[in-house]
Amino acid sequence: MIPTDAFLETAATISAIVLLIAMLIVILRAILGPSMADRVLALDLLTTLAIAFVAIVAVLYGQVVYLDVGIALALVGFLATVAFARFIARGGTENARKVEGDD
């Protein structure tokens, strides 16, 4: 499944580079993010972009296994986002401190 001609390989390489730039920009939001939800949102988008990047790597190097990595990333990323959302809904780190104080 390696691209048969240089045209497709160039297209795949360009889109991989664009995806890397996009991931760098998203990391900027994860660093800046005023609230914890902003950081979780950036993490969620980062996982989605990583899935796309891994799929392109699978094409470029002809390794089908990378697509399985992408599916596993989708599973883990979804569960992580849901877990973080529930954590925020329960009051995040403030609540954790409160529990420590009650002891």
Binding site: F7, L8, A11, A12, I14, S15, A16, V18, L19, I21, A22, M23, I25, V26, L28, R29, L32, S35, A37, D38, L41, A42, L45, L49, A52, I56
Partner: peptide, 30 residues
């Protein structure tokens, strides 16, 4: 067709990344 799909997909990803940095609040960023 394949080149169009790959390149437009990465363009949308870049737009999403720019949007998540430039938009004013969390709910618009989402």
């Amino acid at each position: 067709l394949i080149a169009f799909l790959l390149l437009s997909g990465s363009a949308f990803a870049l737009v999403a990344a720019i949007g998540i940095v430039r938009m004013p609040d969390l709910f618009i960023r989402m």
